[in-house]
């Protein structure tokens, strides 16, 4: 298990816990991450205004991994969506490939369609497997009740992503349960968190967030588990904003899946960066250290 590690923009610059916990968990499981040097943004943030610019940016990164001769592993729903869509579009359209390659040629690069792109979660589920993960659990998170939010872009469009059922995803919940924790369902579990509307329609972005948080609160979850940096920031920092604006305090800790897994593997919370979140999982950590 050796992958070209595509970190994207937000994870290395803001979500240190996601990167640290992912690297440590992968090391435990024998997944070798080879950092992609000088990669660029995957293009997602400007896809709505320039399809062509997006495609060249995505193709550049795919070509970079081709040079390394490795499939790509990423931690971000936006990146996996961008790179897989570009890969699918370029593979099926030789004319488009030629056009995009005429730009890449200026950097001495060429897209040939030789690599695949996977989200970490898919690698854990398919390459490693639930049974192998369970074997590594040293400190089961028994008693912990987790709600999951998979996020849209790793699931849809389904015909490209081929990740999990877009309507009833189960991979993340199974992976959470492998740690010994329980998962709870809640209404609108697969609904968008609203992050993509930040700066475009903040009112609806917050309305969507509140709807989700209310349902997660009602489900009595101890923690919300995410696998996307954008969703994670929306849920974590968004709770601060809601507290200020609406005087409503949900106090739901939001953690990246590898943090949960790392805790179950017995890795220290400082090493995983668990306390870097805005909503501090203080109570949760106390319960965990008491053995729950």
């Amino acid at each position: 298990m050796r992958y070209a590690f595509y970190l994207g923009c937000v994870i290395p610059t803001r979500l240190f816990a996601y990167e640290a916990s992912s690297r440590k968990v992968c090391r435990e499981l024998g997944i070798e991450l080879v950092d992609m040097e000088d990669y660029i943004c995957c293009g997602t943030p400007i896809e709505a205004v320039s399809h062509r610019t997006w495609l060249v940016m995505a193709a550049y990164n795919l070509a970079l991994a081709e040079k390394m001769g490795l499939d790509i592993l990423t931690l971000c729903n936006g990146c996996v969506n961008s790179l897989k869509k570009a890969n699918a579009g370029l593979k099926e359209d030789p004319g488009l490939r030629k056009e995009i390659n005429s730009v890449l040629k200026k950097f001495g690069m060429e897209y040939r369609g030789r690599v695949e792109v996977k989200h970490l979660i898919k690698v854990l589920y398919e390459d490693v497997g639930i049974e192998e993960i369970k074997k590594k659990v040293k400190r089961p998170l028994t008693g912990l009740v987790a709600a999951s939010h998979v996020g849209c872009h790793v699931l849809k469009p389904g015909w490209v992503m081929q990740h999990d059922s877009p309507e009833r995803p189960k991979i993340l919940d199974e992976l959470i349960e492998a740690t010994g924790a329980k998962t709870v369902d809640y209404p609108y579990k697969t609904e968008c968190c609203g992050q993509t509307l930040r700066g475009l329609n903040d009112g609806i972005s917050l309305a969507l967030l509140q709807k989700k948080l209310g349902n997660i609160e009602d489900a009595k979850a101890d923690v919300l588990v995410t696998i996307c940096p954008a969703c994670n920031m929306q849920f974590d920092m968004g709770q601060m904003e809601i507290r200020q604006k609406f005087k409503k305090n949900y106090d739901i800790p939001v953690m990246h899946y590898p943090e949960i897994l790392g805790l179950a593997f017995g890795i220290g919370k400082e090493d995983l960066g668990v306390l870097t979140h805005k909503v501090k999982p203080t109570k949760l950590m106390k319960e965990l250290t008491n053995g729950l």
Binding site: P157, G158, P166, C192, T196, L200
Partner: peptide, 11 residues
């Protein structure tokens, strides 16, 4: 510009 790009409509 208020599309969340969640793709649910398409799906």
């Amino acid at each position: 510009w208020s599309c969340t790009t969640c793709y649910t409509c398409q799906e």
